[in-house]
């Protein structure tokens, strides 16, 4: 017997500057821009609300036929601090999900960019990649901070 195969999609939610304080201070320095893009998510962003918006946008793009593939769509993990999450869907139809992720503009009334980072066959590899990416991100922030202060950088 062949077992049922899945695909795990690692994604992140970004917050571009719209209005208020962010709009003015965003362009002052590269670290401020990076940190305000990768903000913490508000508490109303739960796995349930995000899967509902993804399902409704699949319904909008592909209709009843397409959304029949998204019935098994399931959010395995979402962290509000780092605003990254992992989605699970069946192997044959994961293209429908990855194609609709860039077309989402609002979640719960907040304007966002949903960025698909990685697709893999096991959830372990997704977790590993998320940790690796976070380390890279921290290294970049430190690099930019040092270059702003004017110290000489040697890597």
């Amino acid at each position: 017997m062949v077992r049922l195969k899945q695909r795990y999609i690692l994604f992140e939610v970004l917050y571009p500057p719209t209005d208020g304080e962010d709009f003015q201070t965003y362009s002052e320095s590269p670290t401020k821009a990076l940190l305000s893009l990768h903000q913490e998510s508000p508490p109303q962003f739960t796995p349930k609300t995000i899967t509902n918006t993804i399902k409704s946008s699949i319904q909008e793009l592909y209709g009843d036929y397409g959304s029949s593939f998204a019935v098994q769509l399931n959010m395995k993990y979402f962290n509000n601090k780092t605003s990254t999450g992992i989605l699970r869907c069946t192997k044959t139809n994961f293209h429908f999900v990855t194609a609709t992720l860039p077309l989402i503009t609002t979640i719960e009334g907040r304007k966002v960019i949903v960025n698909c980072i990685h697709v893999s066959g096991t959830i372990k590899k997704c977790e590993d990649y998320a940790i690796k990416r976070n380390l890279q991100f921290m290294r970049r922030v430190r690099f930019l901070e040092k270059s702003e202060n004017g110290t000489i950088i040697t890597i």
Partner: peptide, 17 residues
């Protein structure tokens, strides 16, 4: 508007379909 920007590989995911 910066809200409508997407990264290269995300858009290519859509264009593959």
């Amino acid at each position: 508007n910066p809200i409508n920007l997407r990264s290269f590989h995300n858009i290519m995911n859509f264009f593959q379909t």
